[in-house]
Amino acid sequence: MNLMDGLLLTLFNVVVCISFPKVLSVITTKGESTAPSTPTIPSPESSSEIPGVMDAA
């Protein structure tokens, strides 16, 4: 294997390693878009305070 073969294989490897995750991401998101999504409803009782922290002091 000469230098040119090594450079071509390296270039091919770089292209595959960069493009494969993107292609895989597109394929997996297409599969998820067909499933019905359930909306999340926020709870009216939710609060940003942690109960009992100030009472312990």
Rank of each mutant, 00 (worst) to 15 (best):
M1E: 14
N2C: 04
N2H: 03
L3C: 12
M4R: 14
D5F: 08
D5I: 10
D5V: 09
D5R: 10
G6D: 05
L7E: 01
L8P: 04
L8F: 14
L9R: 15
T10D: 04
T10N: 04
F12H: 07
F12R: 12
F12D: 11
N13G: 15
V14W: 03
V14F: 01
V16F: 13
V16A: 13
S19H: 08
F20N: 07
P21I: 01
P21L: 00
K22Y: 10
V23P: 00
L24K: 06
S25L: 09
S25D: 09
I27R: 01
I27L: 06
T28R: 03
T29Y: 05
T29D: 10
G31P: 07
G31M: 13
E32W: 09
E32C: 10
T34E: 06
S37L: 14
T38I: 13
T38R: 12
P39W: 04
T40R: 13
T40A: 12
S43G: 03
P44Y: 03
E45I: 07
S46K: 10
S47K: 07
S48C: 07
E49C: 06
E49K: 10
I50T: 00
P51F: 02
P51A: 01
G52R: 04
G52L: 04
V53I: 07
V53M: 01
M54Y: 11
M54C: 09
M54L: 14
D55Y: 03
D55C: 02
A56H: 09
